[in-house]
Every structure is written in C-alpha cells, then in structure tokens.
C-alpha cells in the first residue's frame, strides 16, 4: 500500500483541508426561516391573522395592500393568512411522513447492516423489490381508493412509501461506519449489541440521517403539492400551499398573486430545507458514502 502513502504526499496536504466546511451565514438564515414557518404554523390561531376561510366578497382578487398583505383570492379570502395556515399541512405532512419513514426504516436498516447474515439478505431483497415499484403511483392509487381522505391518511401512506428509501440510505451509511476501527474495538471490548447500536453507530450515522431527513421532508412537501393538484390532498376549503396554487390556475391571468405567493412560500421553504441538508452533508463530509 505504499502508493497510498505517496499519493497522500501529493494531494492530502494540498487539497484536503482538515477543517470541516463552515456552515456559513446562509445556513443560519435558512434555519431561521424554517423556525419562523414553524412558529407561524403553531401559533396561527393566536396571531393577529384574518380568518383564512372568511370570504370577503367586497374585495375579490385584490392585489397586495396594507389590509391584505398578499392580496385576496377569487372568493375574497386573505392570501397571507391562508399561507400561514397552509404551512400547517406542508409541515405536518413533510415531518409526519418522515417520522414514520425514519421510525421504521432506521432501526431496520441499522440492524440489517449490523447483523448482516440472513436477516440482512431477506430484508434488503424485500426492500429493493419494493423500491422497484414506482412509489408515486402506488401512493396515488392507494390514496384514491382509500376514502374519505384525511391529513393523517396522507401522512401514513407517504410515510410507509418512504420506508424502503430510508432503509437503503441508513443501511448503506451503517455499513460504511460499522467497518471502522472504533466499532470493531467496541465489539472486541465486549460491548453489548444494544450499546454499539445506540451509542456508537447511531451518533455516527446521525449526520447522514439528518441531512437525508431534511431533503426527504422537502421531497414529501413537494409531493403533497402534487397530490393537491390531483385533488388527493386535504380537501378544500382547508388551505394548503398545494391547494392554493392549484386553485390559482383558473384565475392565473386575472390574479397572478394567488399563484405567486404560495409558490414563493413553498419554494423558499423547500430551498431552505435542501440548503440545510446539503450544508450539513458537506459539513460532516459524508459525500463519499454514496446515498
């Protein structure tokens, strides 16, 4: 392995800074934006917002003004208030579904990678077959047959559909970590499996898990928007970002604000999530674990 030593001589000192990539101010702006959205979703009832369902026929399709920050929609509802309330659906679906996906996928993936053997073989083949199915079609098919639709059902269906993906990521990450010397050392010292899994492996795959989780949340939120377009998400008049954008289609020429503001809310939220996820991944330098 002398080649390794010499190639280090040329490259490692030059191109591989030992320091972790800094998170940067943009990272914290994104974190702040997500936090702000969370606060808005939680305290929507308490905040001095107009009723998101109240139809003010006196002001229909009006542009942004002091009274209606983002204007009103085609039946006179306040867009700003609907966006704040709508974030509840996106946040609930995104984080709820990932809670289920990671809740099931993480322990299975870690166990499979740690135990290897037959459990791993069976589990992994099973998950890979599930992955072969186009999850999006399965999601749509199930949601369209499973009526009446509710937020909880959407969360459950998407959550379960994400399990194979989460499983694959976690298993790959755990495999990469479990061959490291400190894990082997822990095993040799007679640490219990439970201890190794929870105290050694889990903290080490957490960075990968968290960054994938955030990107997963973003994907699920976009998926909820898609479902809304197909009429498969929460039913109107409950506002969700997807619903609002969908409703805007018919009045696009008359009232572009109805499309632009919810789109902006959705895109900024997704952008922040993706950015945080990406930065964390760079920060913990987990790119070599191919996900």
């Amino acid at each position: 392995m002398s080649n390794v030593a010499v190639s280090e001589e040329q490259t490692s000192i030059v191109e591989r800074p030992e320091k972790k990539a800094p998170l940067g101010p943009l990272f914290w702006i994104c974190v702040g934006w997500i936090a702000l959205n969370f606060l808005g979703a939680i305290f929507a009832n308490v905040l001095p917002l107009q009723n998101p369902l109240y139809q003010d026929y006196a002001s229909i399709n009006v542009g942004p003004s002091l009274h209606h920050l983002f204007g009103t929609d085609d039946i006179g509802r306040d867009i700003f208030s609907r966006i704040v309330y709508g974030s509840r659906v996106s946040i609930a679906v995104g984080f709820g579904a990932m809670f289920i996906g990671f809740g099931i996928g993480t322990p299975l993936g870690m166990l499979a990678a740690y135990r290897r053997g037959r459990f791993d073989t069976i589990m992994t083949s099973f998950m890979y077959i599930l992955l072969a199915f186009p999850a999006i079609i399965a999601t749509i098919a199930i949601l369209s047959f499973w009526t009446p639709r509710s937020l909880l059902k959407i969360i459950i269906v998407i959550g379960f559909a994400s399990v194979p993906l989460v499983y694959r990521v976690i298993r790959t990450a755990t495999l990469a970590v479990s061959t490291k010397d400190y894990i082997i050392a822990a095993k040799v010292q007679g640490a219990t499996d439970r201890r190794i899994l929870l105290k050694e492996l889990l903290p080490n795959i957490a960075p990968i898990g968290v960054s994938f989780l955030l990107i997963g949340v973003a994907t699920v939120i976009a998926l909820e928007g898609t479902l809304a377009f197909l009429g498969l998400s929460v039913s109107p008049p409950t506002p969700s970002w997807g619903n609002m954008i969908n409703e805007s289609r018919t009045v696009l020429q008359v009232n572009p604000w109805l499309a632009i503001f919810p789109s902006l809310a959705l895109c900024l939220f997704l952008l922040s999530l993706n950015f945080i996820g990406d930065r964390l991944r760079n920060h913990f330098d987990v790119t070599e674990v191919k996900l």
Binding site: T226, N246, R249, L252, Q253, A259, C267, N274, F275
Partner: peptide
C-alpha cells in the same frame, strides 16, 4: 440549487404565467 427546490407544478404555473400567456 434553486431550481432543485421548485417543484414541476410550480414550474408549469410560472411558464404559463410568464411565457405562454
């Protein structure tokens, strides 16, 4: 990276809004 965060349905809306119409 920005485009990564714009779902296709929004792309369509924007294309229709700004170009198609």
């Amino acid at each position: 990276f920005t485009l990564l965060s714009v779902p296709p349905f929004i792309v369509i809306i924007l294309l229709v809004l700004f170009i198609s119409i």
